[in-house]
Design a protein around this nucleic acid. Structure first.
Lengths: 251, 251
DNA sequence: CGTCCAAATTGATGCAAGTCAAATGGGTAC
DNA sequence: GTACCCATTTGACTTGCATCAATTTGGACG
């Protein structure tokens, strides 16, 4: 069965079909004219399927490619010499992993599959060559990287200025809108990551994350059982994220 | 005197000379072959001089250019609707400001001169056109942006995992090595930013920054009077930043 | 040279979130 | 089904840093 699946997914293991991919409105093809799509397909490699917990790459791997999430989800984290971990992001289908490594010989972070996950691989050497020829694609790469800087600044802001409740509300809303953009329910989804990962990402202790979840639940803002989450009152959540700012206003 | 200076700095106000610039081993020219340097000069504009506190751009400005610091220094920060500020970075001569805005119509942050500061301006439209023709320059842009993502991740890590002392030690060491790369003393320099900016950047209260400075001083690690700082014991500082990790090791 | 205001320092107190400890739940393999 | 392990939750206690308040310092300017 597993073998059959593998055959079905990768009839020609080295080439992916962007034309037929349902993510072409999110992923790199978004920036490529239809008649140039072949050139992108030429350099994309259909990556293999990773089971939950498997590494797509880690900080000891030589940097060679960026990856687009095709299905499933990925968490990236920096791991210090002493084994200390800092989760730097969660990636959903259509999002690109590895942009932070383009200045280094080795990957700048470790990427781990949070569930059964498939990816497409873009060898950077070929990708750079192609972006040199396709201005729109180059522009899109700049956009993506710039967006990632902004995201990271937002995270820094969250970490340095916001309370535990505000951080968690922000994360839930971010996930919600990202699910929505992928045509999934924005109010009813299953968290791809463990409480531990949430805690690490948001600079909190696991216990605090757990407590905030139950607090939100008692207030009727969300319903959570394990990884299944239902947002019962999105406005209330938005209010939580803004509460901090509103106080600033009143002063 | 001020006028004479202005004339000397900008004989032809629209064109900068990368050939003669002392920062050519730090800034964008770093990635450009000598015989292509003219093409970079063609698109660079000599920016004006900003006094301390003046804005180079802010979040209401339409995004048009990236800027290289020529002399002086710049701080960038995000300002929320409610006026809350988060400092996202400090920039020294040769460093590029504005890379986080390449995905947006308006600048993603506000850039303010921390002292008398001059800049070179790179209009993005022309810059993108040029990077399409010069693969090395394109590669360098990817490197710069990727480096900025990494820096921001490091900041997030600092904010979420490290104590006040560790954060401040890290900042001092970062400044030290950046001064050194610019052929200035790595142990004896003047902070371009106020305590307030340091506090905001590191997610601390001003009072905490002040206390840590005096603590370091009492321990004989640094000497600080106002913005003048002398690092008396660099190894001790490095030890402070690593203390956290070392504890992780012992477990 | 004194005046004024912002920046920096120092001290006292409170709280949000971390830490430690223990109980509960849920998933997986045998 | 049941045993095991890891993830999650809950409770009790501790603490680093924020906050509030009061000086002190220092630079800009008339």
């Amino acid at each position: 069965m597993a073998q059959a699946l593998r055959f079905r997914q990768a009839p020609s293991p080295l080439k992916a079909s962007c034309h037929q991919c349902s993510l072409s409105n999110l992923c790199l093809p978004l920036a490529v004219q239809d008649n140039d799509l072949d050139r992108l397909e030429d350099i994309v490699q259909q990556g293999r399927i990773y089971n939950r917990g498997e590494h797509i790459f880690d900080q000891s791997t030589q940097f060679r490619s960026c990856f687009a999430v095709k299905s499933g989800s990925i968490k990236t984290s920096i791991i210090t010499e002493s084994g200390e971990e800092q989760v730097t992001g969660f990636f959903m289908p259509g999002e690109i992993v590895g942009l932070d490594s383009m200045s280094s010989e080795a990957y700048a972070c470790t990427a781990k599959a949070l569930e059964r996950t498939s990816v497409c691989e873009f060898p950077v050497e070929k990708l750079e060559e192609l972006t040199g020829k396709l201005p729109d694609l180059q522009h899109h790469m700049y956009r993506l990287m710039s967006q990632e800087i902004q995201n990271s600044h937002q995270l820094a802001m969250l970490l340095s200025k916001n309370t535990a409740e505000e951080r968690i509300a922000s994360l839930l809303l971010s996930l919600s809108s990202r699910f929505q953009r992928r045509r999934m329910s924005p109010t009813n989804f299953s968290l791809p990551m463990a409480r531990n990962d949430i805690a690490n990402f948001l600079g909190l202790a696991v216990e605090t994350v757990s407590r905030v979840f139950t607090r939100f639940q008692n207030q009727g803002i969300i319903r959570a059982r394990g990884r299944e989450v239902e947002l019962l009152d999105v406005e209330a959540l938005q209010l939580v994220t803004r509460e901090f700012s509103r106080q600033g206003c009143q002063q």
